[in-house]
């Protein structure tokens, strides 16, 4: 809850400063924000619905068995692969990650999923290799995947 207060304070301050400098630009910012929000709304709603169903079906005990301590490193690697392939907007993935974490998933597995989700793009790979060349895209995505596992291990070690 305190984070929410910080975010609102931050945005309201920025908004006031923006409005003071240029009401016109501020109006445009609202337009841009509205457009982006409307564009993300379907996927937001979809994820909310699916998360509800998933957590309704899977008990915390089952989540713990699938993504928790006893699932081991294999679950972490699987999570990393899923994160690399899927194209969920990251701001939607965080709430889901949070509740999986509270239901007994390990920090390591959740971190692996989030990190590959944002850093490795299987779907965007063709575009990336067209812009930078295959070698660059392969290296960047490959190293990001390995890096994600390293980050996951470090965070799992420190935070659990």
């Amino acid at each position: 809850m305190s984070t929410v207060i910080v975010i609102y304070t931050l945005v309201l301050t920025a908004l006031a400063a923006s409005f003071f400098k240029s009401p016109q630009k501020t109006k445009k910012a609202f337009k841009v924000a509205k457009k982006a929000l409307v564009k993300s709304l379907p996927s937001l709603l979809l994820v909310i619905g699916i998360v509800g169903l998933t957590l309704g079906i899977l008990s915390p005990g089952m989540i713990e068995r699938l993504l928790g301590q006893e699932a081991g490193f294999f679950a972490t690697i699987l999570a990393a692969v899923v994160g690399a392939i899927t194209l969920i907007p990251s701001i939607v993935a965080f709430p889901m990650a949070g509740s999986l974490l509270r239901s007994g998933a390990t920090v390591m597995t959740i971190t692996a999923f989030i990190t590959t989700l944002v850093m490795v793009g299987v779907v965007t790979f063709p575009l990336e290799s067209k812009v930078f060349g295959r070698q660059f895209a392969l290296l960047r995505n490959g190293l990001s995947f390995l890096g994600a596992l390293v980050i996951a291990v470090i965070m799992g070690g420190i935070l659990s």
Partner: peptide, 28 residues
């Protein structure tokens, strides 16, 4: 599931508007 989804929706509805507004501001 409905209760969980509704709770999510509430949290998201609270946090998304300022986040998107921040994006809009920096875009401009």
């Amino acid at each position: 599931s409905g209760i969980i989804a509704a709770q999510y929706f509430k949290e998201m509805a609270l946090i998304m508007p300022p986040v998107f507004l921040l994006m809009g501001l920096s875009e401009v």
